[in-house]
């Protein structure tokens, strides 16, 4: 049985913002599944529907075998939800937070006590367990967020942007934590992220979400391999970027050329062979090049390929809207 089944979800917010536009995907049990997309793509709305906070206008979703609208309480008992906004009571201690969470999840007292000790140990929170959360560092608090989601041994854990707002060091530590979690617990994890490298590293499968729909789904490696060839990025020193794209796109070896500010990104079959041709074509057009890089396709390129839009530009536009 699939841990999560989503079919044709639609949601429009009162102000007319169309957040979901027929979104569908399936997550099999026991894996880490990444919902990847820029800010404003509809990831958080999807999660809110799956954890029963919000209701879809149309479409259906089942989590751990239960319908999220008709069997909301059954869903709530089988999931953990770690939201972007944390949700920890910062005026209480880690232990108190964990106990309250276990109580509202209807855990028997004795089992709860053992589970709290276990989680404090697993997440390295023993030393701070009886300190007020307000005094914690960002990374420590985030670990408690995740622990809170796991108190009642849920079958599915939702992590909404688990590392947003963390410094690089805390982010790396959180990644290690989540990797361990994925191995040890009998758990399906759905994580949303707008960090491509995060999805690449943590998720067994990903779905790329753009403007309320899944544009492509699969294993990150396969998606990248599906894009034949290399990515060539050219930084322009002068000249019109759009006309440069036109020049490059006309070359036979180039499959795709897209402009992003001063950067021109081209997808080619063989990077090392294509670079001289690209450079001479640009030079012939009077355009000076500042730098060139050749790389294997990244999820950036996957996003670009399937949506025709640049991930970072969309992400910035999306966060500006919010």
């Amino acid at each position: 049985m699939a841990a999560i089944e989503v079919e044709g979800l639609e949601k429009t917010y009162p102000k007319g913002v169309r957040a979901l536009d027929g979104l569908s995907f399936v997550v099999e049990e026991g894996i880490v599944f990444g919902l990847l997309g820029p800010n404003g793509a509809g990831k958080s709305t999807t999660v809110k529907i799956l954890v029963t906070l919000s209701k879809p206008d149309a479409g259906e979703a089942r989590v751990a075998g239960h319908d999220v609208v008709r069997e909301a309480d059954a869903v709530r008992g089988s999931i953990g939800y770690v939201s972007q906004a944390s949700g920890v009571d910062v005026h209480a201690t880690a232990r108190e937070n964990l106990f309250l969470q276990g109580r509202v999840q209807r855990m028997p007292q004795l089992e709860l006590r053992a589970r709290v000790d276990e989680l404090l140990h697993t997440f390295g929170l023993e030393e701070v367990a009886d300190r007020i959360v307000r005094t914690y560092s960002g990374g420590t608090k985030r670990r408690l967020d995740v622990a809170l989601g796991l108190v009642h041994r849920p079958r599915v854990l939702f992590l909404d942007e688990p590392t947003t707002g963390l410094d690089p060091e805390a982010r790396a530590a959180m990644w290690e934590e989540l990797e361990r979690l994925a191995e040890s617990e009998q758990l399906t994890i759905l994580l949303t992220t707008h960090y491509l490298e995060e999805a690449d590293r943590l998720a067994r499968r990903i779905a790329i979400v753009s403007r309320g729909r899944v544009v492509v789904e699969g294993e990150p490696e396969k998606l990248k391999r599906g894009l034949l060839g290399d990515a060539v990025t050219v930084e322009l020193a002068n000249g019109n970027a759009d006309s440069a794209a036109g020049v490059v796109a006309r070359l036979g070896a180039v499959e795709e050329a897209i402009v992003d500010g001063r950067h021109l990104r081209a997808r080619v079959e063989e990077g090392a062979q294509a670079v001289p041709a690209i450079l001479s074509a640009l030079e012939a057009d009077g355009i000076t090049v500042a730098a060139v890089t050749v790389s294997r396709p990244s999820l950036d390129d996957v996003y670009l390929h399937y949506t025709g839009r640049d991930f970072r530009a969309e992400d910035e536009a999306g966060s500006a809207e919010q």
């Binding site: 954890v51 029963t52 906070l53 309480d73 709530r76 008992g77 999931i79 939800y81 939201s83 972007q84 906004a85 944390s86 949700g87 920890v88 009571d89 910062v90 969470q101 509202v104 999840q105 209807r106 809170l148």
Partner: peptide
Amino acid sequence: DLDRGVVQRFLATPA
């Protein structure tokens, strides 16, 4: 509690 997401956390439980 709304600002800190505490309410949403409880809403995702059977509380």
